[in-house]
Amino acid sequence: MPKQPGGQRLRLPLEWLGILPFMIFAVLFLILPTMKIVIGAFQTADGSFTLQNLIDLNTDSIRSAYWTSLKLSFVTALLGCAIGFAMAAAVVFGGLPKGVRNPLVTFSGVASNFAGVPLAFAFIATLGPVGLVTVWLRTEFGINLRAMGFNLLSFWGLVITYLFFQIPLMILIIIPALDGLKREWREAAAVLGATGAQYWRMVALPILFPSLLGTFALLFANAFGAVATAFALTGPQLNIVPIKLFAQIRGDVLGNPNLGYALAFGMIVITALANFLYIWLRVRSERWLK
C-alpha cells in the first residue's frame, strides 16, 4: 500500500480538471471583470492606489442618484413582495377556483421576463401623457392625472412600471413556498386554540420568513441593476445610479474615467451588502432547519 497516498494526490487535481472549462469561463467573464472594477475604483489614471475616486462620489448629484436608486429598489421590492404575496396567497389559500392558478403562474413567467424597453413602451401607451388610462380618466371622469401631480417619468411612475416584473417574480418564487406550508400545521394551531391571525404570526410567517427575505433581496438587486426600463422610459436624464453609469460608460460624462469604476463599485457594494444581510438574517432565522 505504499503507493496509495501518491495515487490519491494525483487523482484529486484530475477530478477538478472536469470543471476547468466552467472555471475559466467564470474567471474570464464574471470574476475578472468584477475585479477590474473593484481594483479600478482604488486606482488613479496611472495605476497608483488612491481613495480619491470614492471620495469624489460624494457630490450632490451622485449622492442623490444613489439615494433615489436605493429608494426605488427598496420600495419596488417591498411592494412587489407584498402584492405578489397577497396574490399568491389568494390563489393558494383564498378559495379561488383551481383553474386560476396555472394561468397565473404562466402569466407570471411571461411578465417577469417582459422587462426592459417594451415594458416602458407599454406603460407610456397606458399611463403616458396620451396613454389609454390617462385619456380615459380625463374624458370620462374629468380627472387630470398630470394636474394631480402624477407623472410616469417620475419616481412613482418608475415604481408602478417596475412592479410589472417585480410582482410576477415574487409570485413565481413564493407559490412553491406557500405550497410547502403543511395543512397539519394550520389544523394543529387551530385545535390548540389559535386564531387565523395567530397561526400566521406565530407559525406560517416565521416559516416563510427565509423565502420572503431571499425574494426581497433578489427583487432589490433586480431593481437596482435595471437599466433598460428606466432608460427607455425617461432617457438618459433620470438620476439613478445605473443610468448615470450607463451615461458615464457611453460618454465619460463625469470627466474622470476612474470615477466610473467607483460608481460601479458602489453598486456592487450595495447589492453585496443586501445579500450578506439576507444570508445573515437567514442563518439567524433558520436555526430550525437541517
Binding site: 403543511k182 397539519e184 385545535v191 386554540g193 430550525w288
Partner: peptide
C-alpha cells in the same frame, strides 16, 4: 375548531418546525 378545546395528534410532521 379553535374554540372546542380539543387536543389532536396528526399522522406525522405536524410539529411546528420553527
Amino acid at each position: 375548531a379553535n374554540s372546542r378545546n380539543i387536543g389532536m395528534m396528526f399522522q406525522a410532521y405536524a410539529l411546528f418546525p420553527n
